[in-house]
């Protein structure tokens, strides 16, 4: 966009020339938005690092000073959450992996292989995207508790695994539910990506003699790796942050299999009131896995979004 290239670092004239109000306005806006997004986050972290009295005395976003600084909030929150972290990851990681893989296969079958009735099947997937969580809660608990009590069936098996008491078997139906519920939206995402791939690639592979599964394994799968990154991050965040299904199938924060989202509301609140330091610490820790995931895969994410739109 900028036409001028400064010829030397101390070319005052060109600096003055570059200084115009449009540019100033642009940067002011950027700073404003940055503040808008970052201040709540910063406030949370600062609160987590303060003692109760410091919280009461200082401004919410001011950094802790001197004696007001403490790590006990974080330590306490961490000890409360450790167990549920394990539960959350035990459920979210396999659920996301399965989800992404199945969705990619489904999208491949719906986009690059032609068969009668695929439009109707795809329409079903589309409908699946729009089914609200609340609408399925009652049938869901009916199904997993009365019709097909998978958790109870697996209980003896889980009891045999060290560190996991039998109660953890409830994570299995929850995982399956997440996979089932996540497939439609992931399929739609993959489908739009596959549509953008040149058709001749698949045709060339067909003529080269590759079967439908081999085309998927050798051509389509490697080509859609950037998209896998995008969908994985998106879906992991969804499942990790989900509350309603966990609440329905695990029932409460006291259950040994409770994931982070069930523990979080209960932490730091007691009859004496709300301990903001502990609450903020817990919220920060709970958000960590998704933040790490975003940072680690930021480039892949951007690349995937780019290829999808281009």
């Amino acid at each position: 966009m900028s036409q001028s290239t400064s010829r030397s670092p101390i070319d005052v004239e060109s600096l003055v020339e570059n200084f115009n109000y449009r540019r100033v306005g642009k940067y002011a806006l950027v700073v404003l938005f940055l503040g808008f997004f970052l201040v709540p986050l910063e406030t949370g972290i600062m609160t987590a690092l303060k003692t109760n009295s410091a919280i009461a005395r200082s401004l919410p976003f001011a950094p802790p000073a001197g004696e007001g600084f403490t790590l006990t909030n974080l330590e306490y929150a961490f000890s409360q959450l450790t167990n549920s972290f394990v539960n959350s990851l035990l459920m979210a990681v396999p659920a996301t992996l399965l989800n992404v893989l199945l969705a990619s296969m489904a999208a491949y079958g719906l986009t690059m292989v032609s068969w009668r009735g695929q439009i109707a099947v795809f329409a079903l997937f589309l409908v699946g995207v729009f089914v609200p969580y609340q609408a399925v809660l009652v049938p869901l608990s009916q199904f997993w508790n009365n019709m097909f009590p998978l958790a109870r069936m697996l209980e003896p098996l889980f009891a045999a695994i060290p560190f996991l008491q039998g109660g953890h078997s409830r994570l299995v139906p929850l995982t399956i539910t997440h996979v089932a519920y996540g497939i439609p939206i992931c399929t739609v995402l993959f489908r739009s990506y596959y549509k953008s791939l040149p058709n001749s690639l698949v045709e060339a592979a067909k003529i080269d003699g590759a079967s439908i599964t081999k085309i998927y394994r050798r051509i389509v799968l490697p080509l859609s790796l950037p998209m896998f990154g995008v969908v994985f991050i998106y879906q992991f965040t969804q499942i990790y942050n989900e509350f309603l299904f966990s609440f329905t199938l695990i029932t409460g924060s006291n259950h040994p299999a409770a994931p982070v989202t069930l523990i979080l509301p209960a932490i730091g609140s007691s009859t004496e009131g709300i301990d903001f330091g502990i609450r903020m610490s817990a919220a920060f820790l709970a958000a960590l896995p998704t933040i790490i995931l975003y940072v680690a895969f930021a480039e892949q994410f951007a690349k995937g979004l780019r290829t999808e739109s281009g």
Partner: peptide, 13 residues
């Protein structure tokens, strides 16, 4: 049969 496409359809990866 073997076929050569206009856009070559080489596997980019």
């Amino acid at each position: 049969i073997a076929m050569v496409f206009q856009d070559y359809a080489l596997y980019p990866h």
